[in-house]
């Protein structure tokens, strides 16, 4: 399961971002914020996975549950978290009108 989530985060999420960014200028303000949230979340997740997987360089065993969780799930969860934060914290209640 963890490996499937990792592969999903590795391949499906970037492709999803690419698809979502198609005709970016035609998106509403809120949608654009959510896309940026996704991109930022994915960027942070890349840093997290790289750092957690390499420091310290030891195997991912059941004893290192948090580490294994961060490596396998960050790429999928942090972009979703970015989208959620962007969705919730919309500073302008403009009804999502396009500019």
């Amino acid at each position: 399961m963890s490996l499937l989530v990792f592969l999903f985060g590795l391949f499906a999420v970037p492709l999803g971002m690419l698809l979502s960014c198609h005709r970016f200028k035609r998106r509403t303000r809120r949608q654009r914020r959510m896309l940026w949230g996704m991109v930022a979340g994915y960027g942070v997740s890349l840093l997290v996975v790289l750092l957690v997987s390499l420091v310290p360089p030891v195997m991912w065993m059941p004893a290192t549950g948090l580490r294994s969780f961060l490596v396998h799930w960050s790429l999928a969860l942090l972009p979703a978290l970015g989208v959620l934060i962007a969705f919730v914290t919309n500073p302008r209640a403009d009804g999502g009108q396009s500019t």
Binding site: L10, F11, P14, L15, M17, L18, L46, V49, L50, S53, L54, P57, L75
Partner: peptide
């Protein structure tokens, strides 16, 4: 599309290669 898809793997392989 390929760039976005394999970016992380390439970065990971590059960093581990340097290490």
């Amino acid at each position: 599309w390929l760039g976005v898809s394999v970016a992380f793997l390439v970065i990971l392989i590059s960093i581990t290669g340097v290490l």
